[in-house]
Design a protein around this nucleic acid. Sequence first.
DNA 1: GACATATGTTGTCACTGTAAACATTATTCG
DNA 2: CGAATAATGTTTACAGTGACAACATATGTC
Lengths: 195, 195
Amino acid sequence: MSDPYHHGNLRTALIERAIEIMDKEGLEKLSLRGLARDLDVSHAAPLRHFANKADLLQEIAQTGVERLIAASQSAGDLKPGLDRLRQTMNGYVLWATENPAYHHILRNPDVMRHASDDLKSSVDKFASMQWEDITVAQMNGWRPDEDPRLLYLHLISLTAGTAIVLTDPMYRAVVGRELDNADIKGSISIFLDGA
Amino acid sequence: MSDPYHHGNLRTALIERAIEIMDKEGLEKLSLRGLARDLDVSHAAPLRHFANKADLLQEIAQTGVERLIAASQSAGDLKPGLDRLRQTMNGYVLWATENPAYHHILRNPDVMRHASDDLKSSVDKFASMQWEDITVAQMNGWRPDEDPRLLYLHLISLTAGTAIVLTDPMYRAVVGRELDNADIKGSISIFLDGA
DNA sequence: GACATATGTTGTCACTGTAAACATTATTCG
DNA sequence: CGAATAATGTTTACAGTGACAACATATGTC
């Protein structure tokens, strides 16, 4: 009964342990061999489930984006527009701070360089939702005279930046630690609710 | 005359080559042994100049921040306030897109984790300049009713985010490639010049 | 029950960072 | 000037890593 030859569900165990490692020690400290050790399995066992390290990361990234999309639509059936945009931005930042591993992986060059079509299209889907929100919001009177391309760049930059500032050790040191959820919403509101 | 035992200025050669590698192949592809090979020197020679890999990166980061500070003050003696803030933000993004290596290194956890006091205080100096700009700008009537902490978070997030969006492969894919300098200034102006 | 497939293991290779012991050149100081 | 010393390189070595191939065992299917 003890030490069965087959682990049982090594695949999911690898993913879970990998996320754990990344959340508490960072992506840099993640190694396939380390995972294998943690799960009491031979050093090459993980390769039966993931062709290589980037492949593992990619799979995690994929579920990360899916969770992101789900999270930013959490309220359910919001119509495209400013309200949905606000929720998406808040949801993105929240997602990033609560799942730094996902956020970090998605920004790993090695992962995105070999991104699967699935992953790419998930990312695209998320992006086009925001583009839609901007154009609809403008039709409803929000910053009607602004170039939508600039609004889009601004939006992406602000959400990505906020997530990074709250996550990245360097920026945390600069911006201080005493920021709560209301502050984040406040910062985003500066953009969404104008002057 | 050929193949002298001493390289002459291995230290600076290492730094230059490292920046070259990072700009064209990314931080991930940088290795001490690779540098040594490129410079026709034994694999352990770099360790005479840098205690370890993070040490090399850190030194590059240090000069990176110094260049950043110099670049964002390029116009010379602007007084604190909105104008200087605008220049700092534009300067930061420009610096990041022109020297992706510096920008990337500064955000490497291994570098900042063991950051020297020099590096930390350079970063602090840059941050406090921006804080000063915000408070002065508010005294001069810019977004006077806003919480300065939120403005600061917003500012840092927007600049960091813009730099990342323009640099990071994943975001580049989302936001498209046809963005020029005017677009960047335009996006920043959305924040600085209100609704 | 035999066979095919999925999953693990062992052994190996090339690469990396880092350290220690040694070699050569530069510098300093009597 | 010349010897001691510091600075800089080299060689050798070790442990950790991703990846591959050959092999072993379990699982599932006809």
